[in-house]
Amino acid sequence: MAATLPVEGVSRRTLRSETWIVLALSLGASGVSALISFVGSLTRPEGLKDQAATLNGSYAPGRPWLDLAWQLFGIASALVPVLLVAHLLTREGAPGLRAIGFDLRRPWSDLGRGTLVAAGIGSAGLAFYLVVRAAGANLTVVPESLPEVWWKYPVLVLSAIQNSVVEEVIVVGYLLRRLDGLGWTPYAALAASALLRGSYHLYQGVGGFVGNMVMGVVFVWLYRRWGRVGPLVAAHALLDIVAFVGYGLLAGRVDWLPTA
């Protein structure tokens, strides 16, 4: 189980405020945005599966260098909350992100575990998505709609890594450490983490919400067992890389993959 130390000299009120601020600057805000987007999708005349949720799109169509600049800026700026978390962990006397197991002490172990987790979740997740979309409970997810330029796949890989680092560091490592420190029970902390993960995927539809909640439960359980977010970052990055790059290579070339 991951160890959680109290923050000496810091009140519970301060810890609660700090946690809310971190979430408001990152995935908590994404959860609110996803809810608004989902309401918008529900109130459109067409069904959910006839609408698309694009994950990686162009910021400047027809202007590849400007588009690249925006892509890299978006990836870099999204990582700022992770730097804030590292600062807050260091402030409490912990060794920064190493306190939650995000470091290079066990790279091959983290990658090996992450690969196994990604293989299991990826196959089940794809099947679940296809079923719920066919049932009309999910939008058509378009992992990428970037132009065919030289930087397309490197940017998709960087985007996948950014997603994995932000989500696992904040939603698992940091949030559980703070909720444990505030006296939440392990089950309550698990529910909060899983619900948050589901919330910011709600823009994809009911399937995106439920599927990611289940993934959140699995990831919290694994974090408690291993005490490291490293394997979870590796697993999430592999899942997104396969989804983003795979869609770019297969969309329109296979019949089973839905496209917008």
Rank of each mutant, 00 (worst) to 15 (best):
T14F: 10
F219P: 13
P147W: 00
R228M: 04
Y59S: 14
L116I: 14
R105V: 13
L202W: 03
A251V: 12
Y174H: 03
E144R: 12
A78H: 09
R105I: 06
P231M: 07
R177W: 09
E148A: 15
A191I: 12
D180E: 11
A52T: 15
A237R: 11
E92I: 14
S37K: 09
V10P: 04
Y153L: 12
A191Q: 02
H87P: 00
A86P: 14
R133A: 01
A2D: 04
P143Y: 00
Y129A: 08
G31H: 03
V166K: 10
P154V: 01
A135M: 13
V214I: 10
W256M: 05
A53T: 14
V157M: 07
V82S: 11
R177D: 14
R224E: 09
N138C: 04
V169R: 10
D50W: 11
N56A: 13
G62Y: 01
G120A: 05
V171N: 14
Q162K: 09
A135C: 02
S58R: 11
R253I: 11
L55W: 00
V233S: 03
D67C: 03
R224L: 09
W221N: 00
L97K: 10
V80T: 05
V85I: 03
S199W: 05
T185V: 03
R228D: 02
V169E: 02
A137D: 07
G114C: 06
G120W: 05
S11N: 08
V32E: 00
S17Q: 11
P45Y: 00
L89T: 10
T185P: 07
L175G: 02
I21L: 15
V132E: 05
A251T: 09
V142Y: 02
G93K: 12
L158W: 02
T115R: 05
